[in-house]
C-alpha cells in the first residue's frame, strides 16, 4: 500500500458516496446515467468474484464489499425507488457498443485464459469506458449539476492516482500489470476534457454548462 493507492481508493469511495447521497438527499436521480451505474455494478461484480477464492486483507475485502453494495444500491435508487425522476430519454448511449467489444477484447488479451481471469480482465476494460454513457448524457443536455461534477471529479481522480501508484510499484516493488496500466491510461484520458472544465468553471464557482 502506498499513498497514491490509498488516496485513489478513498477518492473512489468518496465518488460513490457523493452520488448515493446526492440521489438520496434530493430524492432524484436527474442528470445521472443509469446505464453507467449498471456498467459499474457489472464491473465490481466481475472483478470481485475473487472475494470467494482468495483473501488479501481486511481492508481489501471490506472495500470490495462496500463498493459492490453501494453500486447495487445506486442502481436500485435509479431504477426502482426514484425511477420517476430518471431521465431515460437523455440516457441514450448504446451500451452494447461498449460491452460486446470489451468482452471480445478480454477473451483475446488477458494474463491467463481462465474464467475468473477473463472476468477480471473484462472488468478492467469495461471500467475504463463505463463513464461514457454519463459523459454522453452531459454532452446531450449541455449541463451538469455541481454535485454531479464533484462525483465525476473524484471518480476520475481515482484512476489518475492509480497511475502514480503503478509508477511507484514499478520502481519500488518491480510490480507491473500491463492490462491495468493501459486501461487506466485510457480511463484517465477520457476524463481530461472534463477535468479541464471542472478546474476552469466549477472550481471558480460557475455551473458546468457547455456551449450550445
Amino acid at each position: 500500500m502506498n499513498i497514491f493507492r490509498l488516496t485513489g481508493d478513498l477518492s473512489h469511495l468518496a465518488a460513490i458516496i457523493i452520488l448515493l447521497l446526492k440521489i438520496w438527499k434530493s430524492r432524484s436521480c436527474a442528470g445521472i446515467s443509469g446505464k453507467s451505474q449498471i456498467l459499474f455494478a457489472i464491473v465490481f461484480t466481475a472483478r470481485y468474484l475473487d472475494l470467494l477464492t482468495s483473501f488479501i486483507s481486511v481492508y481489501n475485502t471490506s472495500m470490495k464489499v462496500i463498493y459492490i453494495g453501494c453500486a447495487y444500491a445506486t442502481v436500485y435508487l435509479i431504477y426502482a425507488k426514484f425511477r420517476a425522476t430518471y431521465d431515460g430519454n437523455h440516457d441514450s448511449f448504446r451500451v452494447e457498443f461498449l460491452v460486446v467489444p470489451v468482452g471480445g477484447l478480454a477473451v483475446l488479451i488477458n494474463h491467463t485464459f481462465s474464467p475468473l481471469e477473463i472476468l477480471w480482465t473484462f472488468s478492467i476494460y469495461l471500467e475504463s469506458v463505463a463513464i461514457l454513457p454519463q459523459l454522453f448524457m452531459i454532452s446531450k443536455t449541455g449541463e451538469a449539476e455541481t454535485i454531479t461534477t464533484h462525483y465525476l471529479f473524484c471518480l476520475g481522480m481515482y484512476r489518475t492516482l492509480y497511475l502514480f501508484n503503478w509508477v511507484w510499484r514499478f520502481y519500488f516493488e518491480g510490480f507491473f500489470d500491463m492490462i491495468a496500466i493501459v486501461a487506466g491510461l485510457v480511463q484517465t484520458v477520457l476524463y481530461c476534457d472534463f477535468f479541464y472544465l471542472y478546474v476552469t468553471k466549477v472550481l471558480k464557482g460557475k455551473k458546468l454548462s457547455l456551449p450550445a
Partner: peptide
Amino acid sequence: PEGEALHDEL
C-alpha cells in the same frame, strides 16, 4: 505466479 494471477488492488 503460475495459473491465476493474484490481483491485490481494488
